[in-house]
Amino acid sequence: MLTRRTLNRSLAALTAAALLPGSSRAEDAPRARNVVLVHGLFADGSCWSEVIPRLQAAGLTVTSVQNPLTTFDEALASTQRVLARQDGPTVLVGHSFSGMIVTEAGADPKVTAVVYVAARAPDAGEDYAALAKTYPTPPASAGIVFDGDEGRLTEAAFLKDFAGDLPPERAKVLFAVQQPFRKGLLTARTTQAAWRSKPSFYAVSTEDRTINPDLQRFMADRMKARTIALAASHLALISQPQAIADLILEAAGQPRHRP
Rank of each mutant, 00 (worst) to 15 (best):
K110W: 01
S233A: 03
T187C: 04
I52K: 15
A29L: 05
I238V: 14
P139H: 04
E126T: 06
A225D: 04
I238Y: 05
L215M: 08
K160C: 00
A75W: 09
P168E: 08
P241F: 14
V173P: 04
A243E: 15
Y116H: 09
D147E: 01
V36D: 01
A118G: 15
F72Q: 14
R4S: 15
P168D: 10
R209C: 14
R209I: 10
R31L: 15
S10D: 07
V36C: 07
G164V: 03
L174P: 07
G88Y: 06
L174G: 12
V145N: 08
P213K: 13
G125K: 08
L76Y: 00
D108W: 06
L69W: 04
L11H: 12
A129H: 03
P68G: 09
V82D: 01
A57V: 07
D87R: 11
R54I: 01
R196L: 13
F97V: 04
S23Q: 08
T137G: 05
F181P: 00
W48G: 07
A163M: 14
G59T: 03
M219T: 09
D87Q: 11
N8V: 00
A132V: 08
T190I: 07
A84Y: 06
R33K: 07
L37A: 13
K160R: 13
A225M: 04
V35A: 10
C47W: 09
S78Q: 02
F97K: 03
A176N: 02
A130L: 06
Q66K: 12
A12E: 06
P213Q: 12
T79H: 09
T79V: 06
A17G: 01
G148D: 02
S205F: 07
A232C: 10
T187H: 02
N8I: 00
V65C: 09
S239H: 12
L185Q: 03
P53Y: 00
A251L: 04
G184Q: 05
A232Q: 14
D221R: 07
V82F: 00
R170T: 15
L235H: 05
T90Y: 11
F72D: 12
Q254I: 05
L7T: 11
E74D: 11
